[in-house]
C-alpha cells in the first residue's frame, strides 16, 4: 500500500472539490473493496478523502412515492429498512445474498455500486490486465475464466461486475445522484452508470473525476413478487456465478436483471416482453450475441434455468 494523506470531508461539495484538485485522490467510505485493492497496489491513491462523517446516511421517502437512499447508508441498514423490505424486497434479498454480515455492516450504498471486478487476473499484479494497467493485455482471455463475463465482453476485457445490490437497483430503475467538484449535481440512470469494457476497461462507470455519489433513488414500488436468486458454488459468502433479480406480476409480466453475466448488471428490456412465454424465450433475447469462453459457457444454461426456477416460484 502506497503512503497517502488522509482528510475527513466536511460536506459533499467540499469532498468533490478536494478530490478534483488533488491528483490521486479517492473517496473512502466502507473501504471494504478499496483497502483490499490498495493492499495489493491495484489501487494506489495518494490521498484518501473520508466521507463517512457526511450526513448521507438516511433513507427518505420521495415526493413521487419512491425512496431516496443516502450514499452512506450501510448495506445492513438498507436491507433492514422496513420500507425496503416491504416494497423493494428484491433489493433486500440481493443485499443479504452478498458478502458477509461483517462486510455488509461496513459497505455503503455508493461504495457497493463502485466495487470492482473479482477477476483473478485483475487481482494479481504480476499478470497482464487492461483494467488494472491499460494496454498490458488480458490474461483472462485464454485463462481461467469460469467466473467471468459471457456477454458484452470485448477483446480487451471479459471481467464481470461482481455485486448483487446493483443488480436489484438496475431492475428497479434506480437513479444515481451525484455532486460534481463545481458543486453542481446530476442524476445518472443506473442503466447508464456501469459501462461495458470496450477498449477502455479501466473505466468501470461513467463518474467523472471528483464526482461524488450522494444518493440512489428508487421510483415508486412496482408491486408484484420479488426474487433474487443467486447461484454460487458454496452456500454463502461467495460471488455469484449467476444471479437473477426479478419482479413478476400476477399476469406473468415483469422485469428481470442478471448478475454474474457481464461487466455491468445485465438487463435487456426487450427480453422482458417474453417473460410470460417463459425462461427460454426470455433468455434467448437477453443473451443474444453472447460470447462465452469454454470455462463459462455453462452460465447461459444456468441463467436460463435459474430464471425458470424463479418463474416457477412466481406461479406457485
Amino acid at each position: 500500500m502506497k503512503a497517502f494523506e488522509y482528510t475527513r470531508a466536511s460536506s459533499p461539495a467540499d469532498a468533490a472539490a478536494l478530490a478534483a484538485k488533488t491528483p490521486g485522490a479517492r473517496f473512502i467510505a466502507g473501504g471494504t473493496n478499496l483497502l483490499d485493492l490498495m493492499k495489493l497496489e491495484i489501487e494506489t491513491p495518494t490521498h484518501l478523502i473520508d466521507v463517512n462523517k457526511l450526513a448521507l446516511d438516511r433513507i427518505e421517502e420521495t415526493s413521487d412515492g419512491g425512496l431516496r437512499i443516502g450514499a452512506l447508508v450501510r448495506n445492513t441498514d438498507l436491507a433492514a429498512d422496513k420500507r425496503v423490505r416491504r416494497d423493494y424486497a428484491v433489493l433486500t434479498r440481493a443485499i443479504v445474498a452478498g458478502a458477509s454480515g461483517q462486510l455488509r455492516n461496513k459497505a455503503t450504498t455508493a461504495g457497493n455500486l463502485l466495487q470492482r471486478t473479482r477477476c483473478p487476473y485483475f487481482y494479481d499484479p504480476n499478470q497482464p490486465c487492461n483494467k488494472r494497467k491499460p494496454g498490458s493485455g488480458c490474461a483472462a482471455i485464454g485463462g481461467f475464466s469460469r467466473q467471468l463475463a459471457v456477454i458484452g465482453t470485448s477483446k480487451a476485457c471479459i471481467a464481470t461486475y461482481p455485486g448483487d445490490m446493483a443488480i436489484a437497483m438496475r431492475l428497479l430503475d434506480a437513479t444515481v445522484e451525484t455532486v460534481k467538484p463545481d458543486g453542481s449535481t446530476r442524476k445518472i440512470a443506473i442503466a447508464d452508470f456501469h459501462r461495458l469494457p470496450g477498449d477502455t476497461p479501466h473505466l468501470d462507470n461513467t463518474l467523472q473525476t471528483g464526482e461524488l455519489i450522494t444518493a440512489v433513488t428508487l421510483p415508486k414500488p412496482l408491486g408484484g413478487k420479488h426474487f433474487y436468486h443467486k447461484v454460487r458454488d458454496r452456500a454463502s459468502y461467495a460471488f455469484a456465478l449467476v444471479s437473477v433479480a426479478a419482479v413478476v406480476q400476477k399476469d406473468g409480466t415483469g422485469r428481470v436483471a442478471f448478475g454474474g453475466m457481464a461487466h455491468k448488471p445485465w438487463r435487456v428490456e426487450a427480453a422482458e416482453a417474453a417473460l410470460p412465454k417463459g425462461a427460454a424465450a426470455t433468455a434467448k433475447i437477453a443473451f443474444a450475441g453472447a460470447t462465452p469462453t469454454h470455462d463459462n459457457a455453462f452460465k447461459l444454461q444456468l441463467a436460463e434455468r435459474t430464471l425458470a426456477a424463479v418463474l416457477h416460484e412466481a406461479r406457485g
Binding site: 494479481d124 485463462g143 460471488f239
Partner: peptide, 14 residues
Amino acid sequence: VNHDLAGYEVPVHA
C-alpha cells in the same frame, strides 16, 4: 490462479 480465500473456496457455515 485463485490464490486467496475468495478465489479458493472452502466450506462456510452454511
